[in-house]
Design a protein around this nucleic acid. Sequence first.
DNA 1: TGAACATATGAACAACTATTCATACGATGA
DNA 2: TCATCGTATGAATAGTTGTTCATATGTTCA
Lengths: 109, 109
Amino acid sequence: MAHDHSELLKKIKKDMPEDELLQDLGDLFKVFGDTTRIKIMYALYEGEMCVCAISELLNMTQSAISHQLKTLKDANLVSARRDGKEIYYSLSDDHVKSIIAEGYEHITE
Amino acid sequence: MAHDHSELLKKIKKDMPEDELLQDLGDLFKVFGDTTRIKIMYALYEGEMCVCAISELLNMTQSAISHQLKTLKDANLVSARRDGKEIYYSLSDDHVKSIIAEGYEHITE
DNA sequence: TGAACATATGAACAACTATTCATACGATGA
DNA sequence: TCATCGTATGAATAGTTGTTCATATGTTCA
């Protein structure tokens, strides 16, 4: 071991959230950590879109988009609504926008 | 191709940030997308810490911590200051806290 | 009911990532 | 100057992840 930190560590450990929460936090940000998913979320800023339109917009396979939408849905970031053959996705709540906005701020300065 | 979306797509494309920025955004969130790094950032909430203390706190190799600190530093999320043999790391700015706070809110509700 | 369309999904593969190990670098004090 | 301590770093490896391909599910309309 190295020099003594016990005092400091005791204090910090007390204020740290539980491991499970920290894990969930990491998992959440992992979802934001992909350009395709970021683009999908940005595309939904204006309102709902069907899978078909998203894949055309991003010039990507329908399958690839579907897989990513599932990831986003599992993280409660987007919701789905069926209308006939099509399924429309939209942002689940405003958290998506605020999280992206905070990231945006860090980058552009 | 599928049914027609040209009108919608034209509008959305106009409002979408450039690809490079979206890439940078994804890269930034990727840094937050790891539990070890989240823990390190949380540990620095109270103030600066040396590498030694962080690795003791997280019960991880000094090498592992150093690698992650480099990742955080490259993303301008932490800064380093040398004092003798030790190097003290601290959060670069308040963005770290606000980004984590937004993620926290999404999870806990 | 069957054909066509929109979407979902499982398996497979290539690309990426976090940790470990070994070692190098830089500072201190004897 | 040399031994020691704190930290950084490159290479290797195991685990993870995004896309593709093939195919399945569900809906509409004739």
